[in-house]
Write a protein that binds this DNA or RNA. Structure first.
Length: 400
DNA sequence: AGGCTTAAGGGTTGACTAGC
DNA sequence: GCTAGTCAACCCTTAAGCCT
């Protein structure tokens, strides 16, 4: 079933029908919602309250349909993966009091956190796409209705653009609590987002015209997830806690690379490689980036397989070099140095003078006007781009 | 799983050109 | 004819890729 374009369970729909019938104002409803489930500002305004009241009373309660994953064409972390991530974190004895999920989408990490941690006092979720804000709230209700005895932290799901959200206000409000920042920020470059404007991609990704992003990174192009990760490190590097985000491998690499200069106070940097074809049905290398906040800056990263937890390698900085495998480099660093030969990328280009041949009076002549005798079997026809303007090509003008 | 395409970014090279 | 600057063609790399 769907309300406000968000999936909703039969259980939650039945509950809301009863709940809203006995509630007159949205302020009253918000108070009751907070008392019962700890959710702040369930309704942003009276319009939302009246709208939901009408929708649940009109909705013919029927069998629960499977959520339509493809609906918005975006990339939600599935519940199994979210749970596996949270279980992995709880095995590391991470006992967070504050959970923050930037770009929370349908809130699967928030719900997985509620079921895996008993120590949480406050939960913050931020999401730009309003139907997902509803779906996250419905999902939380569903979790508490199914698990009535579970502990209920204070929960705030904010409907806004991640770049407008003031993370530093959370860091000021909770200076000593143990944090867990968790989630799956969008794996897309800002230049790609410009192109999304006219296509059918999800509204939640359409952050275009963000002012000052170029200026802040000094680059024309960067990964949104990388920017979000750096923004979070900036706000929370001096807090006790952990950061665990699903990001592209290139983002993990860039963050470890930049640690040499930026020296964010993060240590124990780990990368747990996931099968993104299986989890998200996409062709890109991605991993769970995991690190501990408020440690002396680390400039290297241990890489594991997420499913077997088998260690693969460590990469990072060694003797002012950024290397992809610290162990291998350490063993072979003696032969590292300056190459005595100059490496030239234009070798093929330069060879044209010698190897590009024209047939003159039965001989081959190159661009240096050298006449060369060659076996026919080693000569191939060669088309320059200017030859391709002819619609029909019968012979090649040049040979190679 | 692996071969292949395409578009874009960033860097290098050498031809060309204006000015002297 | 020389020099400094410009520009286009190239190179390699990478990709929430594409296809069998």
């Amino acid at each position: 079933m769907r309300i406000f374009e968000a999936n909703i369970s039969l259980q939650v729909c039945t509950f809301l029908k009863e709940f809203l019938n006995n509630t007159s104002s949205f302020e009253n409803a918000n108070q009751k919602m907070f008392d019962a489930f700890g959710i702040n500002t369930f309704f942003e305004n009276d319009f939302d309250f009246q709208g939901l009241k009408e929708s649940v009373s009109n909705l013919a309660i029927s069998s629960v349909e499977e959520p339509d994953r493809a609906e918005y064409g975006d990339f939600q972390t599935n519940k199994d993966l979210a749970n596996a991530v949270l279980q992995h974190l709880s095995k590391k004895n991470i006992l967070p009091e504050i959970i923050i999920e930037p770009t929370c989408g349908k809130g699967n990490f928030i719900i997985a956190s509620l079921s895996n941690f008993k120590t949480v006092k406050r939960v913050f979720g931020i999401e730009i796409y309003k139907p997902y804000v509803w779906e996250t709230k419905f999902g939380i209700l569903d979790f508490f209705l199914s698990n009535p005895n579970s502990y209920k932290p204070e929960i705030t799901i904010t409907h806004c653009n991640i770049f407008d959200f003031d993370f530093k206000s959370i860091s000021k409000q909770f200076p000593t609590e143990k944090l867990l920042i968790i989630g799956n920020p969008p794996w897309v470059t800002n230049s790609k987002l410009g192109g999304l404007n006219s296509s059918n991609l999800p509204k939640k990704s359409n952050f275009k015209n963000q002012n000052g992003l170029d200026a802040m990174t000094g680059k024309g192009n960067f990964d949104i997830a990388e920017y979000i990760t750096l923004m979070l490190l900036d706000a929370f590097q001096t807090h006790t806690g952990y950061l665990a985000l699903l990001v592209k491998n290139s983002v993990v690499r860039n963050i470890v690379f930049d640690q040499k200069d930026k020296r964010y106070r993060v240590g124990e940097i780990e990368k747990y490689c996931i099968d993104s074809k299986k989890e998200f049905n996409v062709s890109v290398e991605a991993a769970l980036l995991c690190c501990q906040l408020n440690l002396s800056p680390s400039i290297e990263c241990d890489e594991f397989d997420f499913y077997s937890l088998e260690k693969r390698l460590s990469f990072g900085w060694l003797n002012n070099k950024f290397v992809s495998n610290l162990t291998d480099y350490d063993e072979t660093k003696d032969i590292d140095g300056v190459c005595p030969f100059e490496w030239r990328q234009g070798i093929k280009h330069d060879c044209t003078n010698v190897m590009e041949l024209e047939r003159v009076n039965g001989h081959f002549v190159n661009k240096l006007s050298e006449e060369i005798k060659l076996e026919e079997g080693l000569i191939y026809g060669f088309l320059k781009s200017s030859d391709l303007k002819n619609t029909v090509i019968k012979n090649t003008r040049k040979h190679i």
